[in-house]
Amino acid sequence: MSQESTAGKLCEISFTVNGRPQTVHVHPMARLLDVLRFDLALTGTKEGCGEGECGSCSVLLDGALVNSCLIPALQAHGADIITIEGLARAPRAQILQQAFLDCGGAQCGICTPGMILAAHHLLSKKSQPTLDEIREGLSGNLCRCTGYMQIFEAVTEAAKQGAVRQGSVKQEAAT
């Protein structure tokens, strides 16, 4: 799964991560996941499968939910990226995190950062999603522990408490 970062020239890539400008020198095809975890030491983003199936490496890239294991670093040039560490600092996102704690939405925790970003993304598009919309919205993020029901509960509870204002992904998470 891993690419060969030693081959070819390194290039300079600049982007914003969690509201802070960053410049890294990496192979253009280096995975964004590795750049975040290794170059920037943001280890909250997890690797589960390395092929875009499990969603554990989910981050927000210009407001879109992406699997960072499938994004070459070059594609992230100039982008605005939010990881779990950035979201964790956003005041209203704490409602979502608290709901995950209260409802049992996190067990082993390895899918949790990606799951919370996916939930945040869903709520930013639709502040009061139906159960079917939650199922669909989170179906790119696998969880082996919970059987998902308590995650649905957490998202429903967070929506009720107004965890995310619709259309507010970038602005809010970057504060």
Partner: peptide, 21 residues
């Protein structure tokens, strides 16, 4: 009682440390 998961806060904020971290 359903008290908060002991290591839950670290898990929902991405601070929990797994071996690859």
């Amino acid at each position: 009682a359903s008290v908060p998961r002991m290591e839950g806060r670290a898990k929902v904020t991405g601070q929990a440390r797994y071996v690859d971290d």
